[in-house]
Design a binder for these strands. Structure first.
Lengths: 188, 188
DNA sequence: AGGGAAATAGACAAACCTGTCTGTATATGG
DNA sequence: CCATATACAGACAGGTTTGTCTATTTCCCT
């Protein structure tokens, strides 16, 4: 059973993700969550804190999803890394998160709306991206990469490129473009 | 000499780019441009039309800059394509557009704030990205690519990945990661 | 069953938003 | 040099925003 706080964070995440952070008012979140305003301000000091909570939820949700997709695809490190791009395509096609169509990366979106790199929201976005790289690196090592750190950065960059391309141009197949490149980079 | 309309569009572009579209109010643009409100609404029917004008200006400005950087780097197609990533690094380090620090890609930002793919602003962003691909393709052909269309898509995806990485993680060196990959894709 | 914590509805303040309107001033071209 | 177009300042309407406050109700635990 979900606490009021959790319902608030879930609804906020959904609305922030689908309609933007600045464009989503507190009142809309409250109405959709069926929660009173004072309840929100008892759990969070401000809208900014709610955004941070929503992004932290998304970080957990997204990385859990991505890792489990990769890990269930194959025990082989190379195949696992390549499976990331198959997972992306599922996401781009709206099949990854129930009730949450693809609207780009929540963290790229957040970093774009809160451009100042010192801003807590921007920093949270940067941390998420770093965690993805940190997850890829040992896999790159296991796959026999000469420079696993560099390869992890390359694969992460391909992932970002696929996301941006899929979102802006409405091109879910960008995942395949990225996968084809990745296949040439990961040792056989 | 610049018309009032041009001053409006320039100021709007600068503020939209550095502080976001929804977060930037009409009044702030008017104050910074030193223009009266009625002048704005004589030239544009709404804020949305001003955003579209600003993005069209940016499309022209950005592609002119990118193409001239590439073309002055080398007459050789392969070198020209690789020079794109050197240009990106200049941009990431804030040296590309006078008085306009790097804040990600204005079109990725726009597509993220106006997520609906049917929205005129989102469409304008998609068109810009397509024009970049259309510029790369003949160069890929001249460089001797087996499948120039596919290579153009790959290079464009690397560009997007570098931009997103540079912005979210504050990592201008992402351009070099992308360039290293590009060098393996373009025939020697 | 009763006491305390938590959630509720709804009003409110103060600031902001976009877009309209009025009346005045400036500048340019014939 | 005057007529016309353009831009000006500033008020205004009507709606939205975040965050605070009060007074009431609901729920849970012992």
């Amino acid at each position: 059973m979900q606490s009021r706080r959790d319902e608030l964070v879930d609804t906020a995440l959904r609305l922030f993700y689908t309609r933007g952070f600045n464009a989503t008012g507190i009142d809309k979140i409250l109405a959709e969550a069926g929660v009173a305003k004072m309840t929100l301000y008892k759990h969070f000091r401000s809208k900014e804190e709610l955004i941070l909570a929503a992004l932290n939820r998304r970080d957990e949700q997204f990385r859990n999803w991505l890792m489990s997709e990769m890990e269930k695809a194959s025990p082989n490190p190379r195949e696992r890394l390549l499976a990331m791009f198959d997972a992306l395509e599922e996401w781009f096609n709206g099949r990854a998160f129930k009730g949450l169509g693809f609207n780009g990366c929540a963290f790229i979106n957040a970093a774009s709306e809160f451009g100042d790199h010192q801003h807590p929201i921007h920093r949270t976005a940067a941390e998420h991206k770093q965690r993805i790289v940190d997850y890829l690196e040992p896999l790159c090592r296991q796959a026999g990469a000469e420079d696993p750190v560099a390869l992890a950065e390359q694969l992460a960059l391909l992932k970002e490129g696929a996301i941006a391309t899929a979102q802006v141009r409405g091109m879910p197949a960008a995942s395949r473009t990225a996968k084809a490149i990745a296949a040439t980079l990961i040792p056989a």
